[in-house]
């Protein structure tokens, strides 16, 4: 349905996206995962025809849309990372304004505005000024505006940044519902692994402009099928202990985050007894030690040596 073919984008000296290939089929939720600065927003801007790639092609229904973007623009609704709304206007006025620019009129426009208000749960706030909204309510309206013209594909660029857990959950459920009930195709970018894990059928993982992995969740997690992810938790760490872990010949990756250390090791190696004796040697009060099911975060750690939020 929608394809990025060997896309690269260079801004002066920075190559934001390098040879990216991506496809999106009708009715699926595709996740674009990566840390800040990975090139996700640039890829999304190219996908939605807002910027032209330095190289490569964007195809919608097998037709190139770089020079003729109108058919794709008609089919997509874009939820930008920024709150792209008029803060001095009310919820309803914002929806009416953006509806009108999509040539919706009269009773059809009013009906659509009511449907969107219902969908995003802001019916009771229709007369309230956007300026008075919480971050979560603004994000919900930001999504609602992109839905006004009933697009086939919803492109969402980090739609849950900086909001409370309840609003995040509401947004995730809304996206899920749109996909299930309205068969809406969704492209969802995030640096929150759990969001992508929860929502998406297929995932593309980007880092520093490169596509480093792609496939279904299961396929991606298979990358770690020959390895174990070991989690160690303790109250505090000893730098010599961490150094010894990093220097261990059977440990391929070590990541320390707060009171947890994550290790990637070959499946055939059992390090449990060795780790326990090391904690005793360095006087570390161990709280837990277990093998985890691999997560997308672990895959990213395995592929880049860094955590998604680093």
């Amino acid at each position: 349905m929608l394809e990025l073919v060997d896309i690269s984008k260079r801004f002066k000296k920075i190559e934001a996206v390098k040879s990216l290939n991506m496809f999106i089929e009708q009715g699926e939720i595709v996740g674009l995962l990566g840390p800040n600065g990975a090139g996700k927003s640039t890829a999304i801007s190219i996908l939605s025809t807002l910027i032209e790639p330095t190289q490569g092609d964007v195809r919608f229904l097998k037709e190139s849309v770089i020079k003729k973007p109108a058919p794709l623009r008609k089919a997509i609704g874009v939820v930008p990372q920024e709150i792209a709304l008029y803060p001095q206007l009310s919820t309803e006025e914002n929806l009416l304004f953006f509806g009108r620019i999509y040539r919706l009129k009269g009773s059809k426009l009013k009906q659509r505005v009511n449907e969107i208000l219902e969908l995003i749960g802001l019916t009771e706030k229709r007369k309230a000024l956007v300026d008075s909204f919480s971050g979560g309510m603004k994000r919900r309206l930001n999504i609602g505006v992109a839905m006004l013209h009933n697009p086939q594909i919803l492109i969402m660029d980090e739609p849950t940044v900086g909001i409370d857990p309840q609003s995040r959950s509401y947004i995730l459920e809304t996206v899920k519902r749109l996909n299930k009930e309205h068969q809406m195709t969704v492209v969802y970018t995030s640096h929150y692994m759990e969001e992508v894990d929860y929502l998406c059928d297929r995932i593309y993982i980007m880092d520093q402009g490169n596509l480093i992995a792609s496939g279904t969740k299961e396929e991606i997690k298979q990358i770690l099928s020959s390895e174990n992810t070991i989690s160690i938790q303790a109250d505090r760490w000893n730098s010599k202990f961490i150094a010894q872990l990093k220097g261990h010949e059977s440990i391929t990756k070590v990541h320390v985050e707060g009171d947890e250390i994550t290790l990637i090791t070959p499946k055939e190696v059992n390090l449990f007894s060795e780790i326990i004796s090391m904690t005793e040697e360095y006087g570390i009060a161990l709280r837990s030690l277990h093998v985890k099911s691999p997560t997308l975060e672990d895959v990213f750690l395995h592929l880049t040596g860094r955590a998604l939020r680093d």
Binding site: L50, V78, I83, A84, F98, I101, Y102, H149
Partner: peptide, 14 residues
């Protein structure tokens, strides 16, 4: 443009 409103309008038929 900074807020993204301009991009939204660019994507519309306007």
């Amino acid at each position: 443009k900074r807020m993204g409103v301009w991009d939204r309008i660019i994507l519309s038929p306007v």
